[in-house]
Amino acid sequence: MFEARLNNATTLKKILDAIKDLLNEGTFDCSDSGIQLQAMDNSHVSLVSLTLRSDGFDKFRCDRNLSMGMNLGSMAKILKCANNDDTVTIKAQDNADTVTFMFESQNQEKVSDYEMKLMNLDQEHLGIPETDYSCVVRMPAMEFARICRDLAQFSESVVICCTKEGVKFSASGDVGSANVKLAQTFNVDKEEEAIVIEMQEPVVLTFACRYLNAFTKATPLSNQVQLSMSADVPLVVEYRIAELGHIRYYLAPKIED
């Protein structure tokens, strides 16, 4: 028996919004420690890794490890049927071929359940090694989303250059060129407005804008985003989900021929 409950459907809706543009389907691996999903996008350029800890749920029970392959478009249709303040419970029997989403209104007067067929997905699982990154940047998630959106107008690619002075995002194309420089902040009133740069070595990396923009669909989940970079390895874009877990996106760099 598997059962996981969140007192508010908003978080689950936001999580799905953060992954459904990149992934058509995904396997939710459930164990007593929580729920994990790892999947590459269709073109195998990026990887999504979602971790939801069992202690972050309002109720969590998982008697046996369970892998549930779900079509994320179908899941999105179902979650649209939940009000933001509904309690959502995800339920499945052991070895079941369906999963049930139950939504309960705050006053308990409306209870709906939606059963969805599970899929057998043959997805490759990649081992991601613990890495010490040359540069780690923490910045407001809204600011990162804004920069990715703005620079995508100028080029398919953005160059991220990080030094101890700051981080610079650049794009150049037919129209011209664009540069956005952010300096590390000192003495900001609110922690969520801070820009913090931890640098061991400077890095310059090139990434495809369309994936960065897809990652920023996670912005509603977190005030801050963390970018971890080292030369010639994938960028990690991490959004923490308060008291529940995190979503990490790995993006393969563009490398000069």
């Binding site: 195998h44 990887l47 390895v233 994938p234 393969a252 490398i255």
Partner: peptide, 14 residues
């Protein structure tokens, strides 16, 4: 021009 790499070339299959 820079060439897009694939994510699978950086991580080992499990």
């Amino acid at each position: 021009t820079a060439k897009q790499t694939k994510i699978g070339s950086f991580f080992e299959k499990e």
